[in-house]
Simulated assay, not measured.
Amino acid sequence: MRQENEAPVNRAVQGQWNLAVCSRVSTKSMGRERLKRFMENDGSLARACAMDVRLLKKSGAEVVPPDYEIFGETAGTAHGMKIRIVCREPFRPKVSKILREKLSLSKKDFDGLVQNGRIRMENGGDVCRSRLEEETTVLLETVHSQKQKQ
Rank of each mutant, 00 (worst) to 15 (best):
M1H: 11
M1E: 08
M1G: 13
Q3F: 08
Q3N: 12
A7F: 13
N10M: 08
N10I: 12
N10A: 12
A12C: 10
G15K: 04
G15Y: 06
Q16H: 13
Q16L: 11
W17S: 14
N18S: 11
N18E: 14
N18D: 14
C22Y: 15
S23V: 08
V25C: 14
K28P: 01
S29L: 14
M30P: 01
G31E: 09
R32H: 08
R32A: 13
E33W: 05
E33K: 11
R34Q: 09
R34G: 00
L35M: 14
K36H: 10
K36M: 14
M39A: 12
E40Q: 13
N41A: 13
N41M: 08
N41I: 03
G43H: 07
G43L: 11
L45Q: 11
L45T: 08
R47W: 12
R47S: 12
A48R: 13
D52C: 12
D52E: 14
V53C: 10
R54E: 15
L55C: 06
L55M: 12
L55I: 05
L55V: 08
L56F: 05
K57Q: 15
K58F: 07
K58H: 13
A61E: 03
V63T: 07
V63D: 04
P65F: 03
P65W: 01
D67S: 11
E73R: 10
E73C: 04
E73P: 04
E73H: 05
A75G: 06
A78W: 05
M81C: 13
K82C: 09
K82I: 08
I83L: 15
R84W: 08
R84C: 11
I85N: 04
V86Y: 05
R88F: 07
E89P: 01
P90E: 14
P90C: 14
R92I: 01
K94E: 08
K94D: 04
K97H: 08
K97E: 15
I98Q: 04
L99A: 02
L99Y: 00
L99C: 05
E101S: 10
L103N: 02
S104L: 11
S106W: 04
K107H: 06
K107T: 09
K107S: 13
K107F: 02
K108N: 11
D109T: 13
F110N: 00
F110I: 02
L113D: 00
L113K: 02
Q115D: 11
Q115C: 06
N116T: 05
N116V: 03
R118Y: 08
R118S: 09
I119G: 00
I119K: 00
N123I: 04
G124A: 08
G124E: 06
D126Q: 07
V127T: 15
V127Y: 00
V127K: 02
R131P: 01
R131I: 04
L132V: 09
E133C: 07
E133Y: 02
E134Q: 11
T136P: 00
T136L: 01
L139G: 03
L140Q: 04
E141V: 00
Q146T: 09
Q146G: 03
Q146W: 06
Q150Y: 09
